[in-house]
């Protein structure tokens, strides 16, 4: 958070998301890479930016923004360490690296097949969760409108 302007920060977030997509592409995960750009750059960052516009938060605040600039670094480090630890400890990693004959190609058909066959329950649960969140948002918006009347 070294940038004062909120919109600049949002745009930089979009750039970093593109960078993440490039990492995916570098790892030969074409599908995930393009989906990352389509969803995160095309939709999520636009949503963030839109929310900033609607809340009139574009004016850069005066004075110091963060009171402990090092705390951010510590949190980021902690998050990275947790993720790295999980990845290293994960069973999938040992399976893949220990078994070179395993088919790990990220073919779109495989992804689709796995998603609607093997992992259909998590998919449905996630869908349900998102729908619930959507309905909740609508209800909150409705209440606000009533309050205005």
């Amino acid at each position: 958070m070294s940038l004062r302007n909120l919109v600049h920060s949002a745009l930089c977030l979009a750039v970093s998301l593109v960078g993440l997509a490039l990492i995916y592409l570098g790892l030969d995960a074409e599908f995930i890479g393009w989906i990352q750009i389509l969803v995160y750059v095309g939709a999520v960052s636009i949503l963030i930016v839109f929310a900033i516009l609607l809340t009139r938060g574009t004016e850069a605040p005066a004075g110091r923004i963060t009171f402990a600039p090092w705390s951010g670094l510590i949190i980021a480090g902690a998050v990275f360490a947790t993720l790295a630890w999980t990845v290293i400890k994960s069973k999938a990693l040992t399976e893949i690296t220990g078994n070179p004959s395993l088919d790990v190609s990220f073919v779109v058909k495989n992804i689709g097949g796995k998603l609607v066959a093997e992992y259909v329950l998590p998919l449905q649960v996630m869908g349900l969760l998102l729908t619930a969140a959507l309905i909740g948002a609508v209800i909150i918006a409705l209440h606000e409108r009533k309050g205005l009347k």
Partner: peptide, 14 residues
Amino acid sequence: RETGLLFFFAAGAA
């Protein structure tokens, strides 16, 4: 071969 159309839409997202 795998993602032609997806690439098109991803480029359009920008």
